[in-house]
Simulated scan of single mutants.
Amino acid sequence: MSSSTRMVKAYDTASALRSPRDQDADVFRHFSALLRSASDDLSRTRALAGTVTLWRTVMAANLDPLNPLPAPLRAQIVSVANAVIRMAEQDQPNLTTIATIGDNFADGLSGRT
């Protein structure tokens, strides 16, 4: 078995032991970390592109009428997603602010306040 195959198997095993909310929180933390560590135009562009994709996915999931979350909560999440996307698409986006919003969502998903 190749090392990459073992790594994928280990990740799958570890992921199965964690809740979907914790896994989702890790995705937000990942992009927040990318935004904070962006040190050049390329890394900044990649971090912003990934962040926009994440928030567009969050928005789409919360616009789905089959989403089990209460409608008022989904509306609030969509509002935040729209705001983050607008911030990320500005000429000079504030990466720290966008990262902080992602961290706040991660904390909420993890049950941290």
Results as ranks from 00 to 15, higher is better:
40 D>E: 05
22 D>S: 15
97 T>H: 08
33 A>G: 07
77 I>Q: 06
45 T>Y: 12
90 Q>P: 05
62 N>S: 09
21 R>G: 10
55 W>A: 02
41 D>F: 06
18 R>L: 05
6 R>V: 04
108 G>C: 09
85 I>E: 05
104 N>I: 04
45 T>V: 11
42 L>W: 04
53 T>M: 08
40 D>I: 08
26 D>S: 07
24 D>N: 07
22 D>F: 09
85 I>H: 04
52 V>L: 05
7 M>I: 13
88 A>I: 01
69 L>Y: 06
27 V>S: 04
24 D>K: 07
97 T>L: 13
5 T>G: 12
81 A>G: 04
66 L>Y: 01
8 V>T: 12
52 V>A: 03
68 P>S: 03
62 N>M: 11
17 L>Y: 05
77 I>K: 06
106 A>N: 02
113 T>V: 10
51 T>G: 07
34 L>I: 00
47 A>D: 05
79 S>F: 00
39 S>H: 12
42 L>H: 01
16 A>T: 10
54 L>D: 04
18 R>F: 03
113 T>L: 12
71 A>C: 02
36 R>E: 06
74 R>F: 00
86 R>W: 08
29 R>Y: 08
109 L>R: 01
73 L>R: 10
82 N>T: 13
83 A>E: 08
76 Q>H: 13
30 H>V: 10
21 R>V: 04
31 F>E: 01
83 A>G: 09
50 G>K: 02
48 L>N: 03
112 R>W: 07
73 L>W: 08
95 L>T: 09
76 Q>W: 00
73 L>I: 14
80 V>R: 01
12 D>S: 11
73 L>M: 15
5 T>Y: 02
89 E>D: 15
74 R>Y: 04
41 D>W: 09
14 A>I: 00
63 L>Y: 00
112 R>N: 09
34 L>S: 13
91 D>K: 14
11 Y>W: 06
94 N>D: 12
75 A>N: 11
90 Q>S: 15
34 L>G: 12
80 V>Q: 01
